[in-house]
Design a protein around this nucleic acid. Structure first.
Lengths: 113, 113
DNA sequence: ATATCGTTATGCAAATTTCGCATAACGATA
DNA sequence: TATCGTTATGCGAAATTTGCATAACGATAT
């Protein structure tokens, strides 16, 4: 089928509400490397407001605390991932790469038709 | 991970624009069985306006005509799928069930952790 | 004590998107 | 040429997303 591409997406939900998809994965990883939500938002080129809202939604449905935040102090504050969040990210990454491999293997040639 | 579910979605795109996902698949199948867009919308419990817009978007990016429409006449009019659309639907269905099987096989137990 | 500074935390209005009501257009048949 | 059930859309309302502006915070420096 000329010009038609197969795309896919995998994500985690908790009682029907989105918990972690690839966009939010990017945000969490940026928080991890930057050490603050503010810097993470800048890194991703999105507004702090938006990044904050995304994190809020995630935490609202997460079965455990995703981050530890601090306000004020030297450097103004910080946001760090919890250990459980790092594990969740690792699990999600495995899931995603696994899915992509499967799709490549199984459907790539079928897609040439 | 307690209460966390893995969800996934697969769809077709043509130059970055969505062509066919599971919602639109349902619409096309309803059109096929009902013989009209109007009846299909009722069948799915969505407004005609919405179904019409979805079909418009699909046709805007499809590399071939998706439906044949008629206005007026006995019965007021009709919408029918083209042969190529039926083939596209079949291909998409295979893709989707294949993906679901793979996910069940590969990731279901991993999800129990 | 208190001023500073960069972060977290939100209110709120504007912009965008989605939704659906209302209505026109259509044309084979009666 | 009147009817009838469909396709086709304009348009305002409703919902959602976006981002500007501003407050709150508190360890450190003064």
């Amino acid at each position: 089928m000329k010009g038609v591409r197969v795309r896919s997406k995998i994500w985690l939900e908790v009682d029907g509400k989105p918990l972690l998809g690839s966009g939010r994965e990017r945000l969490l990883r940026a928080i991890d490397t930057e050490g603050s939500l503010n810097a993470a938002a800048a890194e991703l080129g999105i507004s702090y407001r938006k990044a904050w809202a995304q994190l809020q939604h995630m935490e609202k449905h997460a079965p455990f605390p995703l981050v530890e935040r601090s306000k004020g102090g030297k450097g103004g504050g910080s946001t760090h991932l919890t250990r459980e969040t790092r594990e969740l990210l690792a699990r999600y990454a495995r899931l995603k790469t696994g899915l992509n491999e499967l799709i490549d293997e199984k459907f790539a040639q079928e897609d040439e038709s």
